[in-house]
Design a protein around this nucleic acid. Structure first.
Lengths: 333, 333
DNA sequence: CTGAAAGCGCTTACAG
DNA sequence: CTGAAAGCGCTTACAG
């Protein structure tokens, strides 16, 4: 067992600087109201003692935890990581700190993490997607925390939503495919709720252009690079052969290109490929990959902007913030 | 501004169950000592009020924050993510919660995040690498937190270290390259401290086999996939032409294979390639990539095991825990 | 500009 | 098995 060390507390600093604890507290939280000479003595005492204020105790007294919960399904190969990174970096600048919850995919685990966040009295709870379970919704609502659902634009957000329209993405991709003159798209879709929304929207738009229903293949998540192999085989067996593969992620698109190489096929001459997510690799692969750019970092920054507004007492003008997306046409399609 | 909601507190539950606050507290923290009939009334009162204990207040009273700080340079494309994920998942099972600090690369930022962790009285601070700055070391030491340096085996850890030997990795790769009969390795190295350790160890072992000093190229981090293009060009201009490229990451190895494809070269027939990290893609690329497997998740689990031992009052037997690594020979070399 | 005092929501010896 | 009371380390009206 480690020996318990003694951490100096407010009182130790106060005694040393010959002021009251209240004044030392003010020195930290509202320095402009303490006299210069007093401040100087306090500064010295802090240095001598190595005092680090206990923000947990402070949070209890001021009823501001300065904790923000970030709840995401996973982190290992996550498309949310840019958002998490932007969030965490911005939050520290506001004296806030991120607590991380990995929720997996079940609502039950999600519930546990929401409880954990509420138990720490997190000031805000940021979720990677919209919450549909009504029990969880009301739990979040009653928590008093700012709740931010990201990466989508739910019609009825719990509190605030920051994201983009998956319906619009699907339709945009369809129009792109039509405009480029492709005629036989093959959709490879990870079976996550939002991928399916994009797929359905693609199909609706495609039919609007009076084309036949595209062929498709649905993959159980987690979608791995290795799925590309089976998808490629599937695509090659289709009659007629598809002229473009629309993938629900850049990972898949990338894998398809590797498979094409391995099979001696040329992209996009023999078969075109579209991804989603605009991961770094999309711009760097050979050929570069046509994809949909989502500014994950911006989602994080907009979320923090909402928190800042609330902290400043301004009421948010919008409950749903659309950060948009951008179809980036490159070499692969 | 959101309307402040009223959150029930211990007293509300106690009043409703007609017991003292102390008993409700015991119901949560030490249920075996409260009478069944009492427990039943408390359970009911909790349900009726929707009470969620304030763990922050509880932590202050019990002087256990139940917070564990995870400090990593970044998360967006991080090799540490498996470790973070394993940590976060294991910690919740112990009632602990992870706070996330993104430290960037400067010691100054690192210092801020260490302060933030100490200010929350984190019970443990887990770092992605060894700390060399002596100011930071003593700050960590004085904090009283369990400090775990990961992904390396420092000779003199601050407290506990969990990782593997980069010296051993470099030497192992060199022996592999020798044994497979390659004669002209080209080292492509991201200029991070530990990549350089592996490189130096490779070179030392290589020379021990009385070979000429290998050619090498050092890349300023962050190492991007796109660097592969320049590396490939560089490799092709070397005379004599290298027969194997040893990369400091799978990302680079992967990029080199794509470049090889694009140039019409065959891997490993024309040029062999070795990576590092054993990312998922290494096993799935065509050709599959020879790499060094580091069990990032295991590092996380071992770190939590240390925390559990300490929580149970056992003293740790080892200060440095070697989780090892595994050179995985595949098709690319 | 500063201090004394009450209080944030819990936990935990202590006593019974 | 349970309660009354003190205390965890801060903040913040209130009064001066």
């Amino acid at each position: 067992m480690k020996p318990k060390v003694y951490l100096p507390k407010l009182e130790d600093v106060a005694a040393r600087a010959r002021v009251s604890a209240a004044t030392v507290s003010r020195f930290h939280n509202n320095p402009s109201i303490v006299a210069d000479s007093t401040a100087e003595r306090i500064r010295k005492a802090i240095l001598e003692t190595g005092y680090v204020p206990d923000l947990i105790a402070g949070g209890l007294a001021s009823r501001r935890s300065r904790l923000v919960a970030i709840l995401v399904p996973e982190i290992a190969h996550s498309i949310f990581n840019d958002t998490i990174e932007a969030l965490a970096s911005e939050l520290v600048r506001d004296g806030l700190i991120a607590i991380l919850g990995l929720t997996g995919k079940s609502d039950q685990d999600m519930g546990k993490h929401i409880d954990a966040a509420i138990a720490r009295r997190a000031e805000a709870i940021i979720l990677s997607g919209p919450v549909t379970n009504s029990g969880l919704r009301s739990k979040l609502q009653k928590s008093g925390a700012t709740v931010i659902e990201t990466w989508d634009l739910p019609a009825n957000p719990i509190d605030i939503a920051v994201g983009f329209s998956h319906v619009a993405v699907g339709a945009d991709i369809a129009r792109f495919v039509v405009n480029r003159g492709y005629r036989r798209p093959f959709l490879v879709v990870g079976a996550s709720p939002r991928s399916l929304v994009r797929r359905d929207s693609f199909i609706a738009e495609w039919k609007r252009n009076s084309r036949a229903r595209p062929t498709q293949l649905t993959i159980e998540p987690p979608v791995l690079y290795s799925h590309a192999r089976a998808c490629w085989r599937h695509a090659m067996e289709l009659k007629p052969r598809p002229d473009i593969v629309v993938c629900s992620s850049d990972l898949l698109a990338h894998g398809m290109i590797v498979e094409a190489y391995a099979a001696g096929a040329k992209v996009p001459q023999d078969i075109a490929i579209v991804g989603f997510g605009n991961m770094a690799i999309a711009g760097e692969m050979r050929p570069t990959i046509t994809s949909v750019d989502l500014d994950g970092a911006r989602i994080g920054r907009e979320a923090v902007a909402v928190l800042r507004k609330r902290a400043a007492g301004q009421k948010s003008d919008r409950r749903v913030i659309d950060v948009g997306f951008r179809l980036v046409a490159r070499e692969s399609a």
